[in-house]
Design a protein around this nucleic acid. Sequence first.
DNA 1: CTTGCTCCTCTAGTCGCTAGAGAATGTAGC
DNA 2: GCTACATTCTCTAGCGACTAGAGGAGCAAG
Lengths: 141, 141
Amino acid sequence: MMRSVPIGEAARQSGVKVPTIRYYEHIGLLPAPNRTEGNRRHYETSDLRRLAFIRHSRELGFDIEAIRTLLTLQDNPSQPCATADTIAQARLADVVQRIRSLTALKAELELMVEGCRRGKVGECRVIEVLADHSQCEHARH
Amino acid sequence: MMRSVPIGEAARQSGVKVPTIRYYEHIGLLPAPNRTEGNRRHYETSDLRRLAFIRHSRELGFDIEAIRTLLTLQDNPSQPCATADTIAQARLADVVQRIRSLTALKAELELMVEGCRRGKVGECRVIEVLADHSQCEHARH
DNA sequence: CTTGCTCCTCTAGTCGCTAGAGAATGTAGC
DNA sequence: GCTACATTCTCTAGCGACTAGAGGAGCAAG
């Protein structure tokens, strides 16, 4: 079995693009891997796991600083996990809030689009509503 | 009645911050207003209306290029409004998609947070799930 | 006349990448 | 070996939509 892989293969396996991997190294999120004689990075299984962790975290919308903290926690398994829990809860609260405001937005946009009679711009409800906020149903935004 | 207001007052009335107003002028979204003798911008009612239009559009998540197009349309009311309708519909589709993926995300995060027993990091479900994507319910993301 | 606010221009920073230049290294076929 | 091509390297600059800060000028009230 392969003991280590070059960056392109690491990208393929992790789903993180090559320049992004280098970027993560640059900002200190991923440790600098060993190099071959020809100065090329090669990644061990542990690096690939870390990369997968980062990718999954990014997919869940955690920002880099949060991921940095989560990775540090992962490296110290005997610590209490209150911090991890707090970070995840904050992210959850943010997602819930976003869903709320996007749902309000959706209602607004549906009204606009339904109201459009496909005529001239002068009578277009889309433009009209944009120009006059008070025509919105709920002024939640 | 006030014929024109300085930038701070325009910011107050429109809810757009002072540097952002200057930024909009810089990128050509807002026409450069007249200046006082002391070189200060002063805004007419029409400028304030345009600013309100921009702000509302941004709140609804339209990007600057879309707003540029919408503003041009507003300036030409006799044109057909198909373009405006298309832009709004694209935005709506985007919002719907975002709500979908955020809702999947929410489920994921709830599982993580609920699974956390507030113990040590080594047994924390938050960290565990982040490290192993296959533990996710639906691999929609 | 001084205090304190608003305003001016300009540059640089934010976040999380992404794109591109220009060079070196590695691999496969001949 | 030689050539062609892919992959990798470093470095810098750009994206969107602002935001922050420096350093200075204008202006209104006490």
